[in-house]
Simulated scan of single mutants.
Amino acid sequence: MTGDTSNKPSDRKDINPFLKTALELGPVILFFIAYLRMKNDVFTIGGTDYDGFIVVTAAFIPLLIASTGALWWLTGKLSKMQVATLVLVVVFGGLSVWLNDDRFFKMKPTMIYVLFGGVLGFGLLRGQSYLKYVMEEMMPLKDEGWMILTKRVALFFLALAVANEIVWRSMSTETWVYFKTFGLSAALFAFFMTQGRLFQTYSSEPEEEA
């Protein structure tokens, strides 16, 4: 398992970090803003009524495809997580629009986190840290540290999957949109902030500098 879809390191290109962030987060932010504006609207298309959530989802899919394609064109690479997320958005978002049922799109984060957690867990069973292949350039850790972090991340992803299921099944669509846009991102940020001691204990930087 590798961290990108390019074949050669020379294919990779550096781009402005602000542009990269805008392409990665822009579609999610636009989805949130559009939902707030259209959440109470109903649109009749081809004789079928669609609420604002479905219409916004329909617009979000090509927007995410375009932004991901732009990232690939500008950088020459895509992470496995980006590719998997795009595929699941197209599949589950497409099902929601096609069947006029918002439940499929709400399931999408669950499927993403189960997939990522499952892949990391599979690697652990094989005695490998797939997380290391994805994040090694950002966080130089010893092998033991990568195994511990991978186990924690796998369990954390599975916990997020459970949390998403609870929220979308028991709360309103608006609550779920807030949870998806801000809650999940805040949880990921908070999780990695709490791993500071592990990063310090198992950092490989001193060895590399020596």
Rank of each mutant, 00 (worst) to 15 (best):
V42R: 06
L86T: 02
L188G: 00
W73S: 13
E136F: 06
P109M: 02
L131Y: 08
F18I: 13
G127A: 10
I45Y: 11
G26N: 12
S170R: 13
Y50G: 07
V28I: 15
I148D: 01
V56Y: 09
W168Q: 01
S67N: 03
L71E: 06
Y133Q: 07
T48Q: 14
T85A: 15
F18V: 15
E205C: 00
S79D: 15
L155N: 13
D102K: 11
E209R: 07
I29Y: 14
G183T: 04
V134F: 13
S129K: 03
T48S: 12
P17N: 12
G69H: 02
D4A: 10
G76T: 07
D14S: 04
L131E: 11
T21F: 15
F199I: 11
K13H: 13
F31G: 00
F156I: 06
K80W: 06
T21G: 15
K13W: 05
E208N: 06
F105Q: 12
I61F: 11
W146L: 01
L160C: 13
D11C: 02
N7L: 12
D11W: 10
N16M: 09
T110Y: 02
R126K: 15
I65T: 02
G127K: 11
L63C: 10
L78V: 09
Y113S: 02
R152D: 02
L131M: 15
F60Y: 15
T201D: 12
L30P: 01
R126E: 13
S6P: 13
G3R: 15
Q200M: 04
G127N: 02
